[in-house]
Nucleic acid binder design. Structure first.
Lengths: 338, 338
DNA sequence: AAACCTCTATGAAACCTTTCATACGGACCG
DNA sequence: CGGTCCGTATGAAAGGTTTCATAGAGGTTT
């Protein structure tokens, strides 16, 4: 329990002024080699650890990026986070991962926190389209990049074209011969959900099906439990109306649906085909390997971090950009009537 | 891009001194109601946001707990994190989640970071038994609680009895009639791994089997890919020597093993039975629902946070404690020859 | 020999809070 | 009416860092 070693102590030990110690730490090229060594030795002997709070107070901004995601339990977001960390580390920044758990309250709580910490910037997959808390933090000068979500040109964003993803999913099911389709997802306030649904409708039109060929099963969240509940509702529908294939707004939902279907003794894909979204690692390992829409997750994270860093380091030159990636369909057994 | 609003600006606007503003924010009961309202209004009008760096500089410690885990992609740790956040929120603390990814380098990088931030305390599942970086941070006065890992009485820890867990797994397999067993896990430097293995050996003895009835397949990590590789090695063993049941040190490994076995057209559990560890949500949703050892994950997280908070707030009274939870076996199809 | 550089090192100021001893009125007590 | 006490507000100090204008030493140029 040694007490607080500061630059002053180090300076005293090395027989220099505190300004010199600071120079050794931050711009070593300004200091003569001999002095530098003496200071470094003093640092080591005393076990000096720089105080980030003071440093940050002085410089105005911290070196920590806030990443606010909808669900840390979802591997999609942890893979995304890995990408963010990659790029952040290159710029000597750290990442703090915040889980909004799809709750507006938690989201704005974390935004407050990040603003109080004077975060370097914020990467966020927002819970709602219009978030007053998010607007406020931006207005007061914190850089924000939207992740997994398109935006107006007045703001940076990184996303995957969810509409195309939805279209891919439903086109694939139509190509497999399905005529009665279902969409499982929600809440529709999440743009990811509504865009995927919009894409699904596009595909319906292109495939020459009527809009009511798509039954919509709205869920309260995007997790395994919500998927199970949705599956119950589907199974309980009268047979002639029940879809023969469902497209789920993410893989966790799809896994939930699959689980419940299996429990109810329905065979996938014979009785019902399933397409998921995100292609998380577990999708391939499921009871019936899941057909899914793959997104370039880590790349998404890297791109987001890079946009943010550019916005902060070159505030004059920076032009807001909307980076959009394209998703792919990965076909597996859950839609293949082998 | 409003520039830096500080207490001074708020004070000026409200026509009071900066000390009063601080009091309104921290001990409102000391301030007359009328003054308080005036200050709060000024705060709102100017969009004042407290500067945590300055606050922390003054108070010496930040209000952020560092949680360093082996793998954020592993649902075990995200569930644990949820428990930590629970208890932290009650004490008005925040949690920053750091992913060591089983790398000593990354681990010590994060420890440096947390120490520089003067973190409230650190909760960590360390990569190795003896971590110099961890010793150093502790010595310099940061409270540390080991998570998912027992410890000497000189330090707080929260863990689940991995030895008992290993014993449960192997006893179950023996009870199912298996005589040639396998253990998949690694690196053995992780105490979780070596303890589970030790428990497995205990069960062997209790079950009256010879030590060489257990084939050990060491892996480089605890993830799905490592599991697939381990499965390849098992499948390639001569049939009379190949175990008829394997116990995997965690569920990700087990899922990997299951995946590869299925790909190689081996049936689980007929050709080979599998027991996992952690009982993550995906275990039940796997191709063949996994028998697994369940740990009280969220509870583990809550207990860890509470020990830490106690250690920090009551440094005099505090006695280091080692909290140990008991695991359960959850039997599913992967070991049931229905 | 004076003037001028360059290379190093210095120390004070600034960043924003919180805290603490102190001051100021007004009310109450003797 | 003087003295006390209480409720409230004040302002200075402290906390550790970075930065910047400045000083000093030693060498080079004119």
């Amino acid at each position: 329990m040694t007490e607080a070693v500061s630059v002053v102590d180090v300076a005293a030990r090395a027989g220099v002024s505190l300004g010199t110690v600071s120079n050794v730490l931050n711009r070593p090229e300004l200091v003569a080699a001999a002095t530098r060594d003496r200071v470094l030795q003093a640092v080591a002997e005393l076990g000096y650890v720089r105080n980030e709070a003071a440093r940050q107070l002085r410089s105005g901004r911290s070196r920590v990026i806030g990443l606010v995601v909808l669900d840390v339990g979802n591997p999609f977001f942890t893979d995304l986070a890995a990408g963010v960390e990659d790029s952040a580390a290159d710029a000597d920044l750290s990442v703090i991962l915040c889980n909004s758990a799809e709750s507006l309250t938690r989201e704005s709580h974390y935004l407050d926190l990040l603003e109080q910490q004077r975060a370097y910037g914020v990467l966020i997959t927002p819970v709602a389209t219009k978030t007053p808390a998010l607007e406020a933090i931006r207005r007061r000068g914190t850089a924000v990049v939207l992740v997994d979500r398109g935006s107006s040109p007045r703001q940076c964003s990184v996303s995957v074209d969810d509409r195309v993803g939805g279209e891919l999913a439903i086109s694939h099911l139509i190509a497999c011969g399905h005529k009665r389709l279902g969409f499982v997802g929600g809440p529709v306030t999440l743009t990811q959900v509504s865009d995927r649904l919009a894409g699904a409708r596009d595909a319906l039109r292109l495939g020459g099906l009527r809009p009511n060929a798509l039954t919509i099963v709205e869920t309260a969240g995007l997790n395994v439990v919500a998927g199970r509940q949705a599956a119950e509702r589907i199974v309980d529908m009268p047979a002639h109306q029940r879809p023969s294939a469902v497209f789920c707004a993410n893989d966790l939902l799809a896994l939930g649906v699959l689980q419940e279907m299996t429990r109810r003794r329905l065979l996938v894909p014979r009785d019902i085909a399933i397409v998921g979204y995100d292609d998380i690692e577990f999708a391939a390992a499921a009871a019936v390997p899941l057909t899914s829409i793959r997104q370039p997750r880590a790349q998404l994270g890297r791109a987001a971090a890079e946009l943010l860093i550019e916005e902060v380091t070159e505030p004059k030159l920076h032009r807001h950009r909307q980076v959009v990636f394209e998703p792919d369909l990965v076909a597996r057994e859950s839609t293949m009537s082998t």
